[in-house]
C-alpha cells in the first residue's frame, strides 16, 4: 500500500517537474521534449487511475502525435530567429 502511494507521489512530482520544464526552460526544443515526457508520464498516471483506455490514447496521441506536430511546427517557424532567447540551435 505504501509503496503504491510512494510511486503515485513520485509520479505526481515528475508530472509537475516536466510540466514546469515544458513551460519554463529557456530552450524551446528542450521544452518540447519535456512536453513529450509529460505526455508519457500522463499515460502512466492514467494507468494508475485504472483507465487503460485513456492511457493507450494518451501514449499514442498525447506523447507521439502532438510531439510530432509540435516539433514540425517548431522547425517550420525557426528559420528566422527573431526572439533571440527561444531561437535555439539545431537539435
Amino acid at each position: 500500500m505504501t509503496s503504491a502511494l510512494a510511486f503515485d507521489l513520485l509520479l505526481a512530482a515528475l508530472l509537475l517537474l516536466s510540466a514546469w520544464q515544458a513551460m519554463r526552460t529557456p530552450h524551446l526544443g528542450r521544452a518540447l521534449l519535456a512536453f513529450v515526457v509529460f505526455g508519457l508520464l500522463m499515460a502512466l498516471a492514467w494507468a494508475r487511475l485504472d483507465a487503460p483506455d485513456i492511457a493507450l490514447a494518451e501514449a499514442a496521441v498525447g506523447a507521439g502525435l502532438s510531439g510530432v506536430l509540435l516539433f514540425d511546427a517548431w522547425r517550420a517557424i525557426r528559420n528566422k530567429p527573431d526572439s533571440g532567447k527561444n531561437a535555439g540551435d539545431e537539435a
Partner: peptide, 20 residues
Amino acid sequence: PGGAFQAAAILAAALVLLHL
C-alpha cells in the same frame, strides 16, 4: 479496454511514421 479512438491513434501514428 480498447476501441475506435485508440485504434485510430495507433493507425495515425503508423501513417506519420511511414512519412517520417
